[in-house]
Each structure stands twice: as structure tokens, then as C-alpha cells.
């Protein structure tokens, strides 16, 4: 039932993904596993453009009916765009966590941080271990 975690991006142990656009920018979202845990996402708080975040600092907030969760930035950088569609349709994260449910776009400050993150198979091993 779970979606396959795409191999074109990297993952945090906090259940975010990050994809390198190759031009110094990255796009960030939460994983399919995360949206499954949260279930019905009803609200997303997006950061201001220009906000500076450090690696693993909160960059956005997603809320389900029951819970409030921070979205941690996988890398250090500056927010250059956010997914405005989530303001009206937060459920896009549930429906398409790796595509239309993206959350923010960052200009990376320290691209080498990407190497500290998990790849898809590493992330799958991690969530399998977390379940036990």
C-alpha cells in the first residue's frame, strides 16, 4: 500500500525528502511514510520567502486533525519559494507527497550537507527498524 520512495532524492530520519535541482536549489517535502502516520493533513503553515534555516531546523508546520508536526529542513539554506497550493489544498501532501505535495524550495547554503542524508534504501531500512 505504501508508495515507493523515489531514488532521485535523499531523506532525513525525521521523514523529510529533499531533491537537488542541480542549480543550487532544492525542493523539500515529507515522505509517504510521514503522511501515512499523520493521515488527514488539514493545515500547512508555510515560511516567509527569504527565511534562513539551518539543517534540521523547523521550516514549516503540518497539522492533521489530531496533531501538529514540524517539518525540518534537510539542509541549511534560504527559502525562495513555497507551495501556495497547500494553503487551500493541504491534502495534496496525502495524495502526492513526492510530487504536488512538495512544501518549500530552498537555495542551499551548504550543499555538502546532502551527503549526510539517507538514500532511498537507507531510509527504508531506517523506517523498517523504527517499526520494531
Amino acid at each position: 500500500m505504501s508508495k515507493v520512495n523515489p531514488t532521485d532524492r535523499r531523506y532525513t530520519r525525521e521523514h523529510e525528502w529533499v531533491i537537488d535541482k542541480g542549480d543550487g536549489a532544492v525542493v523539500i517535502g515529507i515522505t509517504d511514510h510521514a503522511q501515512e502516520l499523520l493521515t488527514d493533513i488539514v493545515f500547512v503553515e508555510l515560511p516567509e520567502i527569504g527565511k534562513q534555516v539551518k539543517q534540521l531546523e523547523a521550516v514549516a508546520v503540518v497539522e492533521s486533525v489530531k496533531s501538529v508536526s514540524d517539518v525540518y529542513s534537510p539542509v541549511t539554506g534560504e527559502v525562495i519559494e513555497s507551495n501556495q497550493k497547500l494553503e487551500q489544498n493541504p491534502e495534496l501532501i496525502n495524495q502526492d507527497p513526492y510530487g504536488k505535495g512538495w512544501i518549500v524550495k530552498l537555495k542551499m547554503g551548504q550543499p555538502e550537507e546532502l551527503l549526510t542524508l539517507l538514500d532511498a534504501s537507507g531510509y527504508e531500512t531506517f523506517i523498517a527498524a523504527e517499526k520494531h
Binding site: T39, D40, V42, S64, V65, K66
Partner: peptide
């Protein structure tokens, strides 16, 4: 049980 499927559906 906090939910079986999801809160909105059950509600």
C-alpha cells in the same frame, strides 16, 4: 484505538 482509517472519514 485513536483511529482505524482516518479521523475525518470516521467523523
Amino acid at each position: 484505538p485513536v483511529q482505524y482509517t482516518n479521523v475525518i472519514e470516521e467523523h
